[in-house]
Design a protein around this nucleic acid. Sequence first.
RNA 1: GGGUGGUUAGCUCAGUGGUAGAGCGCCUCGUUUACACCGAGGAUGUCGGGGGUUCGAAACCCUCACCGCCCA
Length: 862
Amino acid sequence: MSERPELAAAFNPAELEAPLYQKWLDAGYFTADPKSDKPPFTIVIPPPNVTGVLHIGHALDHTLQDILIRMKRMKGFEALWLPGMDHAGIATQNVVEKQLAAQGLSRHDLGREAFVKKVWEWKNESGGAILAQMKRLGDSVDWSRERFTMDEGLSESVLTIFKRLYDAGLIFRAERIINWCPRCLTALSDIEVEHQDDAGEFVQVIYGEGDMQITVATTRPETMLGDGAVAVHPDDARYKHMIGKEVMLPLVNRMIPIIADELVDPEFGTGAVKVTAAHDPNDFEMGVRHNVPFIIIMDEQGVMRGTGTEFDGMDRFDARVAVVAKLKEMGRVPSEKRPYIHSVGHCSRCDTTVEPRLSKQWFVKVGPLAKAAGDAVRDGRVKIEPAELEPRYFEWVDNMHDWCISRQLWWGHRIPVFYGPNDEVVVCGPGEQPPAGYTQDPDVLDTWFSSALWPFSTLGWPADSDDLKKFYPTSVLVTGYDILFFWVARMMLFGLFAMDGVQPFHTIALHGLVRDRFGKKMSKSRGNTVDPIEFMDKYGSDALRFTLARGANPGSDQALAEEWIAGARNFATKLWNASRFAMMNGATVEGDLPAFDSLDDINKWILVRFNETLVEADSLLEKYEFSKAMELIYHFAWDDLCDWYLELSKASFAAGGDAASTSARVLGYVLDNLLRLMHPVMPFITEALWCNLTGQESLVVATWPQANAGHSNDASTAIITDIQEIITEIRRFRNDQGIKGSAKILARFSNLGPLAPYEAAIRHIVRCDAGDGTFSSKIEVGSVTVEFDLSGAIDIKAERARLTKDLAQAEKDRATAKVKLDNEGFMAKAPLEVVTEIRERLAQTTADIERMTAALAALPAQ
RNA sequence: GGGUGGUUAGCUCAGUGGUAGAGCGCCUCGUUUACACCGAGGAUGUCGGGGGUUCGAAACCCUCACCGCCCA
């Protein structure tokens, strides 16, 4: 056996992790080679915001990706995990604007060019804090390929796709109702708007004079100043006679028509709604249909303008109060409901109430693109895991609205559109120049526009690069279901278009959100957020990773509590100590593994159990069933290996000789392969242990464990199960009798049968010596009898209680079995193996009852 | 309003037709030379309510109730 450095007595992740990561970097293990003969396996990281820090959701997302990448790397794939960051338009601009504000400056004081320069400076100095944190977590990303959505290559991709879409008629400019954030002063796409239930008001207002009066109901009374009509349902008997006539709009004193439109719900409110075509998406639609004027009554900041009333200059919410007060004075408010809980849109970046606003913006015409994106999933080219989330995807891509892509910001990809003196429009692709005298559109593109190109822009597109040829389409996209629409669907839209119908990924593996210990959503306002860095400091990255992987059932949220992570740390410690023990006893990978048939049942059994665990866990990991795979591995390592195999082997290790060296070789094999299997989820501790065990350089580039068909279906499993049962019964007996754990007692075994070779192992575990004595009490397990010499000190009361309890359970079980077997329907229709099983149960419980009844009778009365 | 997921042990969750499971927590015992970040033993559930299908239902169907998420 070769010399190996002794393992530290205690597992100390804090000391272990950073040097190991550096070692991996230095060795270049994470760098993928496009010229390799190996089949590719590619994941592009969901690019975190350049402003971001690692939160627990990233930790989950990255852990799952790293598990897949590390596993595939070991399986012989050319594994590429491509890292990078998103420029995060609004978020980043906000950060820098805040810094300026601290100096009393706005971005306008600097001017556009200087401001953008400032943002770049900020990015270079303070951006990307998350990258160092990813190293802490152990992400095996290829740092040589790190990308940024604003870098040169990606900017070229943006220009290229913009022009192609424009030329294909899929990008257009139009005046439409868009979501406007009066604080960020920019347009937002539908999905940048979060709907919350807010406490508002629901006010009825009487429009008109004399005979021509109609009462409308609204949650936004201030917008009445911009009303162009009143709408009712065409079949509404209450209002049929008024359709086509005009009413007086109060406060403004303008005559507006009453129109009929199917969109109006006669059941809702008064059945009559005001139509503010420039400030509400539904009203806009009706406005278009009925030629209602589009009257803009607010400026960009949500201040009332141009109504020609006393309300001009008031903030929209102040105006709401003032308008209602005035209408009340006039006796025009017959009813008012407050609070009225209804859904209101908020800016996803700053939470300001969104203002629908008529505005000229650039849009992507999503119809044909979304159709292709839907079809790619429908025809199976792209799989969504878990499949239960497919309906959500379809619901969205099949009903997608045109995508507003222009943003009134300075930080981002500037829209490559130039306007001539007579409103000519020229779109410039990469390297193209506009005609002299043309001016560029001042707006930038939605951040998600460049993110949508991520799976191929990062690989060199539009150039036909080696990377693109080797690594596209990517293998799997791993992300939270919360950005299925923001990001995933958009990559499908653009990927299929740009890559001539080749999908950006084969599989979309969706995970859920990390929630607090009670399953509540984490939020700063609730104060229930957790910091993954803190957990890594305290328990190690492996523990955090294992916890998150163990909680990750496909597509569903997971609760997380600090104790769970402590538990995973305990598991790591267990693994450490078991490995130390194994190596103290000479566990080795040197020499051939002895022939399976030559082994005793204990060694056969652990090989069979490992093989089952490997096959099953491997298949689960391939199906993105991380939680179930972790559960299997955890129980194999802790229960089978530590609690049973190591304990059962102690006797032979203590005895030394051939048996000990055989077990040392088997143990070396199991440990070697278990560490390989666990490496993707716990890379640090497994690396440390495995290198120590095998003397090899690194587990990162070791091969994945091979299943061994020969290690299966063996009678050893039944024998070990019997041994476990006997040991458990003896332990129960000792416990019931109040015998101290360390105390050795005399025992005599009879009828051990095939278990006879393991008597020493059993005795060692349950601390029962052989020898002459007075064997006054006994237990029976199956056909085996164990008699004890308790020097007459048996606790009869405890023994009777135990037997009585077990007897009751056995009688209950027998009754259940009997009912089934007496049931003609069951006997006629149940499958044979089920009937056989119940018959066996009946026989077993009957025998148990007989035995326990006799044992009870034999107990001295007391 | 449309869609969708859920309701199983104190808590968080597995369990898609054949005697109810895990982790954590709880109780008892324990300084047995890997590990107290441990070991051994134990307690705890008419599987949300009601109906149905079936020899057999936590699981399949219907219905009700209550939670959640997405979209409008």
